[in-house]
Every structure is written in structure tokens, then in C-alpha cells.
Design a binder for these strands. Structure first.
Lengths: 178, 178
DNA sequence: ACCCCATTCGACAGTGACTATCAGTTGATT
DNA sequence: AATCAACTGATAGTCACTGTCGAATGGGGT
């Protein structure tokens, strides 16, 4: 699966997402198109797939610390590249994937869907330990997740010398002064 | 254009979004499929299309009051139905459209794209009058827009006796205590 | 060795959203 | 009447995605 993703990204980088058809990927990876769809569901899924989706509810709850949301998000973003200083190396798989999150419209649409799922999974946890109603928890979760995604985008568009954590710090600053 | 949208929604309500093909809509509206695509771009666009998109930057800036964001969002949401008490009548076109925003996955994806556009348009206005950097303005704009969208969703899922404004009040409460 | 069953994979034939292009039609202007 | 622009319809094509089926694979029990 990681093999297919790798090869697909090579092709995308080379010719552009739109100009690569799934059949090309299947061919290059020496599998059938059926297999690609079985693994990733959609073409965008090839870019988005990572191991956050498969986190169980219990594991997710363990990751989230209601009293330290900044630290929590840092930990989650660190999935992209578990480097201690939160710098994402230039040519890494994670860095290459993120580019499509923001620059390829159809991938971006799918990203939002992923975020919406994350919102729905995080909300109950906030509600349970934060003394919020279901409704309030959803709103808070939504603002946090999308606010942080926006922070990631800002970092992506202007990474000059900034680590992700500094971008995240800015974000939480803004959010807490909302 | 409103005529086509009306007819399309009739069909969607009757048979479900997925089970209506664009050709059906074109047929029912007595136009060609080409025309439908020229007007709306995509099938989802038929549901999403309204007059917010065509608002000029100047008009948008006039709508936004940085010192009263709650009032601003209320005004914007009021587009859905300009009733003084912010109740959206049950069978209205707006109410029917909103259902698809949340219940039809592909429409939902496109909604997020619309919101992202709104974020990009609102951010510069916040930056100009709020003393924020571009980056901070985007993050704030993002949290606000998506937070309010989430509030709308909560209201949609549990509209029992609540007006939109009360849902929005809750949302701003949560956001300000973020 | 033998079968049995579950899972995985590839092949194939669709469906339908969307695009590009070209030709006809209308309607306003000169 | 002639012309030009905007709008529309028809057609053909691309490609993402789905459903189904039959073939290989790999392990467990007898």
C-alpha cells in the first residue's frame, strides 16, 4: 500500500495530479486498477491515506488532552513527520503529500471531508471531559480542527524559516483571543 | 436559473440526489445538459448556487463588522431566509437546500470548498481592520466560518424549537471561551 | 497428501459526471 | 439588411468509479 502511494506521488509530481489517470498508477505499481480502488477508495484517497484514520476511539481519547489542546494538536501534526523539532524535511513523503492538500482542488475537497470526520470523532471526547453539550463540543471541535488546518496552510504557503510548532503557537494565540 | 434549481430540488427530494442524473434535470427543465453545466458548473453547484458568491469585495466589506462578529454572521445567515426572527420556514427553498449541505456527502464536500472561498475573502478584511497579520487573519477567519457552519449543522440536526440565532449565540459563546 | 474455506486479486462491462467543440438561433446595434 | 455578440443545443469523447465474476493463494483440519 505504501508502495503504491509512493509510486503514485512520483507520477503526480512528474506530470501533475490531473494528468495522471488511475490506470497509469496501477500500471506503474504493477497491480490492477481494481486493487488501487480497493485500497484507497478514490484517487484522492491515494494522497490522503495515512494511519490517523485507523486510530481507534480509545487511542484517540488517549491522545487528546483537554487541558492542553496545543500540545495535543502538536502531537497529532507530528504524525506527518515524527521529528523532535517538528520540522518537516523538504523532500519527505509527508511534505509532498501536504502540497496536494492545498494546491490540488479535488484533494483539498477530500481533505475537508477527512477533517469533518476528525471533528465528529473529537467532539464526543471534548463533551465527555469538558462539561460541554454535544452541540457546543461540535462547534468547538470544528473551530479547533479547521483553525489548525488553516495554520498548516499558512505554514505551507510561507514556510520561510518557521517550524510547524511556531505556526501552531500563532494559531492558538489567535483562537484564544477570538 | 432559479427555475432550474427549483426543478432540480423537486427531483432530488423525490428520488434522492444520487438517483437523479443531470440529464433528468435538463429534461424536466426543458433545457440541454450543456446549459445546466454552463450555469452551475457541477451537479452539486445546482444545490449550492446562491447570490453570496456574486457579492463584490466592497459589498462584503460593508457587511462585515469587525467589532460585532455575531451580528455579522447573523446578517449573512439571514441570506438563507430574510425573516426578522431568523426562523427558516420548513418547506422553503433555503431549508430544502440546507438539508443537502449536511446529508449528501458530495454536496457537503462542495460546501466546504465554498466555505474555504469565504474564508479567503473574509481574511483580508479582518486583517485590514483588526490589526492582524495575514496569517492570523486566515486562521481566525477559518475558525469563525467553520465554527458557524458547525453551528448551522447542529441547528439542522436538532432544530426543535430553536431559532438559528440562538444556535449562533451558543456558537459564539463557545468560540469566545476557546 | 487431500480438500475446504476465506481472502485477495485481476478482468470485464458498465454508469454517469464533466469537457471540448462546433453549429445554429436570437436579439441588439449600426 | 448586415453584423456582431451572447446564448443555446448536439455530439463525441475522457475518466473516475462500481459491481460482478472467476482465478489464484494460503492456511487448517482430517
Amino acid at each position: 500500500m505504501r508502495h503504491i502511494q509512493q509510486i503514485a506521488l512520483d507520477l503526480f509530481d512528474e506530470r501533475g495530479f490531473q494528468h495522471v489517470i488511475v490506470e497509469n498508477i496501477a500500471e506503474a505499481a504493477e497491480v490492477s486498477p481494481s486493487t488501487v480502488y480497493r485500497y484507497f477508495g478514490t484517487k484522492e484517497g491515494i494522497v490522503l491515506a495515512d494511519d490517523f484514520d485507523t486510530l481507534s476511539e480509545a487511542e484517540l481519547a488517549a491522545v487528546i488532552d483537554v487541558t492542553d489542546l496545543l500540545g495535543t494538536v502538536r502531537a497529532i501534526v507530528a504524525r506527518f513527520e515524527p521529528a523532535p523539532d517538528q520540522h518537516i524535511p523538504e523532500g519527505s513523503l509527508a511534505r509532498r503529500r501536504i502540497r496536494y492538500f492545498f494546491d490540488e482542488p479535488s484533494v483539498r475537497r477530500s481533505s475537508y471531508e477527512m477533517l469533518a470526520n476528525a471533528v465528529d470523532r473529537i467532539a464526543p471526547i471534548l463533551a465527555a471531559s469538558g462539561g460541554l453539550t454535544t452541540s457546543e463540543a461540535h462547534i468547538k471541535s470544528s473551530a479547533l480542527v479547521f483553525g489548525y488546518f488553516s495554520a498548516l496552510e499558512q505554514w505551507h504557503r510561507n514556510p520561510a524559516g518557521r517550524s510547524i510548532s511556531s505556526a501552531l503557537d500563532d494559531a492558538l494565540g489567535v483562537l484564544s483571543r477570538l
